[in-house]
Amino acid sequence: MSDLDLSLARAALDVTPPPGLGAQVEAIASRGMVAIRGDLTDAGFVAALQAATGCAVPEIRQSTQAGDTRVLWMSTDEVMVFCEWGAAPGIVEAFMEKAGDTHVLALDVSDARAVFRVSGEKAWRVLAKGAPVDLAPGQFGTGEIRRTRIATVAAGIVKTGDDEFEVFCFRSLAAYLWNWLCVGAGAESLSDL
């Protein structure tokens, strides 16, 4: 392959939040992602993931982290790596090489999804307007991931800090979910929640 010109890449969404919000919402400009499937308990899988990301296989519905790289539990046979955009092809290559003959699948899916950060004391209330999930403090812990829906959009919710969540959905629905989050984060609507 000839050299790539990464300056030609565009973010899923280039937006700034409207005024009058009671929680912070932002669209994360870029995020590398690798979808990895296989037998999560297989020694070859565990070793390949460790080698490629520095992370252990997360417990069910949890995530693990090493530096800027996080591994999210997606299903009984699937994890998702969050990394810097541009790092994904290297992780795929490292994982596949280390996995050798192990029956696995690793794909760079950095451009398939959009990621939003929702933060603030009422952040969980914003998400609870459309996600049928108990996100209340004390019920949903930092590092936990939940795949669910927000309104009618399939979404993943990761708690990244005390009052901070990352939300991801397919890129084609990014504009919809962004607008939905901005409405839900309205200060007046959060004032009595």
Partner: peptide, 12 residues
């Protein structure tokens, strides 16, 4: 039974 989540019918 796969992910252990107890959730409402709309997720299924």
């Amino acid at each position: 039974p796969a992910c252990g989540v107890e959730a409402e019918e709309t997720e299924f």
